[in-house]
């Protein structure tokens, strides 16, 4: 996730990373990580604090005033087996949501022209 400031609404953070702010901490699937001080009373996430708790790399390009936040680390690529929502365009630019496939089995295959 690209960032131009290091605070953001918890609801936006959850949409981007899958990690929700709850009373017990930052939660994804069955996993909750205590994160005292990471969420303000107004529901604002302190990205630096949460990144440290979840092992998310926070990398700044100082020349371009932009940060990128990596995924949680220290475990496996998947924290939960619940498939994340994923919205991507088709080749014509039409958006498609993975959740539209509910009710069918999906074989999701990554390929590339290179």
């Amino acid at each position: 996730m690209l960032l131009t400031e290091l605070t953001m609404p918890a609801v936006d953070f959850e949409a981007a990373t899958g990690w929700a702010a709850k009373p017990e901490g930052m939660c994804k699937g069955a996993v909750c990580v205590p994160a005292p001080g990471a969420v303000g009373g107004d529901g604002t996430i302190d990205v630096t604090a949460v990144a440290a708790r979840l092992g998310m790399a926070l990398v700044e390009d100082v020349h371009h005033n932009v940060w990128a936040l990596g995924p949680e680390s220290g475990g496996r690529a998947l924290t939960t087996a619940v498939a994340p929502e994923l919205e991507l365009p088709d080749a014509d630019g039409n958006p498609f949501k993975l959740s539209a496939m509910h009710g069918r089995k999906v074989l999701l295959v990554a390929w590339a022209s290179w």
Binding site: A68, G70, P71, E72, R76, A77
Partner: peptide, 24 residues
């Protein structure tokens, strides 16, 4: 679900940092 998580690839701090660098 437990097997799926366990068999997914390891993710180290370096992997997280690599993802951020690639995105930048």
């Amino acid at each position: 679900p437990e097997e799926v998580i366990e068999r997914s690839q390891p993710r180290s701090a370096d992997h997280s940092r690599a993802a951020a660098c690639f995105e930048l």
